[in-house]
Simulated scan of single mutants.
Amino acid sequence: MTEQTVTPTRCGMVSIVGRPNVGKSTLMNHLIGQKVSITSRKPQTTRHRIHGIHTRDHYQIVFADTPGIHTGQERALNRAMNDAAVSTLSGVDVVCMMVDGLKWTPGDEHVLSLLPAKPDVPVLLIINKVDSLEDKAELLPYIESLSARYPFDAVIPVSALKEQNLEQLEKALVERLPEGDFWYDEDQLTDRSLRFMAAEIIREKVVRQLGQEVPHQVSVEVELWEDGPRVTDISAAILVERRGQKKILIGDKGERIKQIGTQAREDIERLIERRVMLNLWVKIKAGWSDDARALRSLGYDEPR
């Protein structure tokens, strides 16, 4: 009778870092196969460190999706976002630095400067959006030039949106995870609460609706969550800093806030798999994005 080889389970934390808008949240969502982190074309959409959990038979990858690392730290909100991202460069099992195709910018240079000179964990370079490269022949010399500047453990070109080369990336990550038991239940997708996820869904709809019309001084606070027999009642306040922002957010005869509410309700219903009655209103809270106490009450950490 032959002995069966038992495949050891692997589990660990993988941090995804990079400048704003390189596709970190999109990558995590597509690797997990579910929308865990909100996305938009607007830079710095992700504000919190969000853990997405990807479980297969013999491994569990806990992704830390982070806000884009940026140099502007004039507000408490910016500092909190940067701290959330930079904190994941240590205490994890693998670091993935993500860049946008061949567009190397001062922002990428800044992220590279934050990586440890002699890393004690593998650091992978993920080159995103390679499907949009006009001349693929430029990719190899680009990889060689960056590999000469930092001891990346591997360089993997992908398209997060088109799901190109994600299997190779996932295999590379699993090979670098330590052996160990799973941290989370196999059907768990994130360590965040449903209230947090609902607030993020609402904020995503605000960001997508408004584009550049209202800056980053917008946040969402879920004030009521009641699960009835058939319907979940949710009330949430959208916080802005100025009266003009409130007017833009509400829109002509309330049409814009109505659209935001409809789109958010549909996504929240898919998330919690039951009917939702969603009530939204807009509050003016002047200076919240530069107020450490207000940020803590909204779930942002300001360790400085």
Rank of each mutant, 00 (worst) to 15 (best):
R41I: 04
H51F: 03
G23K: 04
M97C: 09
Q217R: 14
K285N: 12
P8F: 06
E204A: 01
T7K: 10
R41F: 08
L249H: 14
N29R: 02
E266Q: 11
L139W: 03
D100C: 02
S132F: 10
I257A: 02
E200W: 04
K103Y: 13
K24W: 05
M13S: 09
Q44G: 08
S113R: 10
P20F: 00
P116S: 06
I234V: 10
W183A: 13
I248H: 07
D291Y: 06
F63E: 01
L177M: 12
R10E: 03
R230P: 02
V99C: 07
L295F: 11
K247Q: 11
V231T: 09
S297T: 06
L133W: 08
V36R: 00
D233L: 12
M28W: 01
L114Q: 12
D57A: 14
G91R: 09
P106L: 12
D120K: 11
L112Q: 12
S289V: 07
T66D: 05
K283I: 12
V206H: 02
R149M: 15
Q245Y: 13
T55K: 01
L27V: 10
W281S: 09
I248Q: 07
G12D: 03
I201M: 09
L194F: 10
S297P: 00
R79N: 06
P303H: 12
L140S: 12
D83R: 13
E200M: 10
